[in-house]
Design a protein around this nucleic acid. Structure first.
Lengths: 256, 256
DNA sequence: CCTTGAAATTGACGTAACGTCAAGGTGTAG
DNA sequence: CTACACCTTGACGTTACGTCAATTTCAAGG
């Protein structure tokens, strides 16, 4: 079987320009050139092209591919190992970048948020009311009025950075919760991770030392009972998110 | 404070060429140009450059950066969100590539391995002897001679692809084991993952249905007792690897 | 046989973000 | 006055092709 440039290009899913370019840089020469100057490719070229495309996928440069395919004693394993290292480093860097973007996003959102005094004040008030209403009594019983006062000040005094941290943590929690929902398993590692992140998240709103498993489980239960919270979770994660979190937290708080 | 091109370039850690380029494309114009035609940069330019470099780090193109910095109403949050998506996709792709490289490496190593008939034969024999010696009796007792025969044939008949799979699995296991060793915790998720991978790995060598927690734990114990195995693990992971695996497997096999 | 449209050719410029000379002017310290 | 470091504006090189442009060839239909 022999192919014209277009036939081969369609066969391999590359452009004709690419094949001409590969010809020019001596990466893939046609088998022959007919009387009219047309490039004619044979099965050997098809194979070689496949290999070229494979290595190209792995982000080898065309020059490197040429070396790999030409030198008969080229150590493929070594080249692959090196490429693996490169790719891993690139991945590391990407992970870093993504983290930075996320931080910047959280920061930006936080800034917008903190700048907008009215909204922020409103949000804070809502949170405080909610907390007071739901946990005021229990905390008051357990730790006295002083703790409640401290508790209420906790969020009011939360700085921008802390707020940003809560955004990041909550986001991570949502992610895990989503995966847990897909598996529909509150005992799964995702669900348990979500429960743990939820505990961390809470630590920003609850004064130090006030965390208890009972309170944690109670709060999760409230997420299910209170339609405002349930709705918030449904919107940010998926249907049944509040229930999943509650179940996950139940398991989480019942352990060790 | 005003700076010449070199001063600014050193301050910001970029080349002079870069600053001239940014001038040319109207990304960063100097504050003024002195009588001799020198570019003079002021504090505003320093700030702007910082911002440019920040976004450049996040892999925005210079054109995009220009838009971000010029349009006053540019929605930064949106841009960041989009960038986050892009980066995540790139990461996904990279993960894929890395997996492919790893597979290719395993395959390549496997090929080298399978091609080298002598070594392969030697390895098989060693494995078979080892297995026969260590588990022959137990398996024979439990499943009879037929199982032993099957067991011995299992590895002998293992194809190239299966072999490659074992390489990949073992590598993943080593990785987790290493992390577990760093944390020195056989109950950690890394250690447990390693134990699970070890079970998977075993499935390639043990005939179907012969897996038992007891046998698994026993094998792990042998890794510690038999200096050849212990050494193998030390070489491929780190000191104490065999013991860590044994402890991890103990916990793994004692659960549920 | 002629026409026509698809497919082939080479050539040349464009892309992104600079690196790297080259040729020549400027500033300043000794 | 003379080095010598620093400044300027070109202009070409890099990577892996995309995208015209001008021209020639092939295969099918009228």
């Amino acid at each position: 079987m022999s192919y014209t440039i277009k036939q081969l290009s369609q066969l391999a899913g590359v452009s004709g320009r690419t094949l001409r370019f590969y010809d020019k840089i001596d990466l893939l020469k046609p088998e022959s050139i007919n009387a009219s100057g047309y490039r004619i490719y044979g099965p050997k070229q098809v194979d070689r092209l496949q290999q070229i495309l494979f290595f190209r996928e792995l982000k080898f440069s065309l020059k490197e591919i040429k070396d790999i395919l030409s030198a008969t004693d080229f150590n493929l394993v070594e080249a692959l190992t090196e490429q693996h290292k490169k790719l891993s480093e690139e991945k590391e860097r990407l992970d870093q970048l993504i983290a930075t973007v996320e931080k910047t996003l959280a920061s930006q959102k936080g800034e917008t948020f903190m700048t907008d005094q009215e909204k922020f004040a409103g949000f804070k008030k809502k949170m405080l009311d909610q907390n007071e209403q739901t946990y005021g009594k229990e905390i008051r019983e357990k730790y006295g009025d002083e703790a409640v006062k401290q508790f209420n000040q906790q969020f009011a005094n939360m700085g921008k950075e802390d707020y940003e941290a809560t955004v990041v943590i909550q986001k991570a929690m949502f992610k895990n919760l989503k995966k847990a929902l897909e598996r529909n398993d509150p005992a799964s590692s995702y669900a348990q991770k979500a429960a743990d992140l939820h505990r961390q998240w809470l630590s920003y709103f609850w004064p130090k030392g006030t965390y208890s498993k009972k309170a944690h489980a109670g709060l999760a239960q409230m997420y299910v009972d209170d339609p405002r919270f349930a709705k918030y979770y449904e919107k940010n994660v998926a249907e049944g998110a509040a229930k999943m979190l509650r179940d996950a937290v139940r398991i989480y708080t019942s352990q060790s």
